[in-house]
């Protein structure tokens, strides 16, 4: 319990917030790493998920692949990538992208698939092109589920982005490693608390986005 109080005191100390190694800088770095990883994973997984969800083809293969990727231990992937790419933020970033892809992919195809076949058929009967169907029918209807996938991925990435500090001078993970190695447990716990708070803030933000997106789906229902 005292460790916990010490950790809170450490966070409350303004002296720990400024400078290149201060909390503000570390928070921003952590946020940046998380955003880049989730965005990169989205650029890869969302189009693929839409394609699978829309055509309903290749689902088995991709689901199996995503399952296999999910089963890769992040620590192992990181060490392999680090040996390959050297120090810097690249190796942890790639490992985080791999961590995020399965969740984003699952959200994307489940979202598109969740559009009612009747609505899709009606749109097709009205003469919409496949691209229009995706954009005007399936995406709005599945947006809630899709954002749900992004939310799950973000939560995982924020907590795991601490590993970026394993090979580079980046993010809140620095406090964990310094604390662990120097047996400064209050500092380590402070880092953990900051990561958890950041994760929860992002989660709330995405939960709101998810609600909005789901409402969007309901308001479009019946329009085609």
């Amino acid at each position: 319990m005292t460790t916990f109080l010490d950790a809170l005191t450490w966070i409350a100390d303004p002296a720990n917030w400024g400078g290149a190694q201060g909390i503000s800088a570390r928070l921003l770095q952590h946020l940046a790493v998380t955003l880049v990883a989730v965005l990169a994973a989205s650029a890869l997984a969302i189009p693929l998920g839409i394609l699978i969800g829309h055509t309903r083809r290749g689902r088995g293969v991709v689901v199996a692949l995503a399952g296999a990727v999910r089963a890769i231990p992040t620590l192992g992937l990181l060490t392999l990538l680090a040996l390959l790419l050297g120090v810097g933020v690249e190796a942890p970033l790639l490992a985080l992208v791999a961590l995020a892809v399965p969740s984003v992919l699952a959200g994307a195809y489940a979202g598109i698939e969740s559009a009612e076949p009747a609505a899709v058929d009606a749109a097709r009967a009205m003469g919409m092109s496949e691209l229009q169907i995706v954009r005007n029918v399936e995406l709005p209807l599945g947006a809630g589920v899709l954002v749900g996938g992004l939310r799950a991925a973000t939560l995982q990435v924020v907590a795991t982005a601490t590993l970026a500090a394993y090979t580079s001078d980046t993010g809140l993970g620095r406090y964990l490693f310094i604390g662990l190695k120097a047996r400064d447990y209050p500092q380590m716990l402070a880092g953990a608390i900051l990561v958890a708070v950041l994760a929860l803030l992002l989660d709330r933000l995405l939960a709101t986005a998810q609600d909005r997106a789901s409402r969007l789906a309901h308001s479009t229902e019946g329009t085609p």
């Binding site: 380590m188 953990a192 989660d203």
Partner: peptide, 15 residues
């Protein structure tokens, strides 16, 4: 549940 899931693993192992 989402709070727990947001705790990084390494500090959890120490705590």
């Amino acid at each position: 549940a989402s709070v727990v899931y947001a705790i990084p693993a390494l500090p959890l192992l120490i705590v």
